[in-house]
């Protein structure tokens, strides 16, 4: 099981875009989450002194991922933190909905110890699409910065 992401050169002139890929839907969620975390700050320079649990459910995995990524942006501002890591656990419930249990780890913003990057203002629906290609899950995300 694996996931990866890469930032896109020729999409979103004024902002940032990435593609994430995963063997499973959970892998895809983890890859997209890692891409957003890397956009905000180098996670290697961020400790894990702050944690937040997030629980969400949605029948549509694309909507669930969109809301989860938006949660990260929200907590970045509301708690004034950047993230070291995030663990995502995704389950498909008997009623057909997808359930997400996320654990965000990070610490308050500190420019003297952390390598800060872009202040993402939000996740957009521009070109946003989640699907399967050649047996792997993919998503394209454009971030407003």
């Amino acid at each position: 099981m694996s996931h990866e992401f890469h930032f896109l050169d020729d999409v979103a002139t004024a902002d940032l875009a990435f593609d994430a890929v995963g063997d499973s839907l959970q892998d895809l969620f983890q890859g997209a989450t890692n891409a957003l975390i890397e956009t905000l700050a180098d996670p290697q320079t961020v400790r894990s002194s702050w944690q937040q649990t997030i629980v969400r459910a949605d029948e549509d995995p694309a909507a669930l991922l969109f809301d989860w990524l938006s949660d990260l942006v929200y907590w970045k501002d509301a708690a004034g933190v950047v993230f070291s890591k995030a663990h995502v656990a995704l389950t498909h419930r008997p009623d057909g909905a997808w359930s997400l249990n996320g654990l965000l780890s990070g610490e308050p913003v500190n420019g003297s110890t952390q390598m800060l990057r872009a202040d993402v203002k939000g996740v957009t629906k521009h070109l946003y699409r989640l699907g399967q290609e050649r047996g792997r899950w993919t998503v394209r995300v454009v971030l407003d910065v």
């Binding site: 004024a14 902002d15 929200y74 501002d77 509301a78 004034g80 872009a118 202040d119 203002k121 910065v145």
Partner: peptide, 18 residues
């Protein structure tokens, strides 16, 4: 409430990007 939580501590800040 989410908007309030995001904005309440940001008065007097520049942000980033451009």
């Amino acid at each position: 409430d989410q908007a309030v939580s995001r904005g309440i501590n940001q008065l007097g800040t520049l942000g980033s990007g451009n």
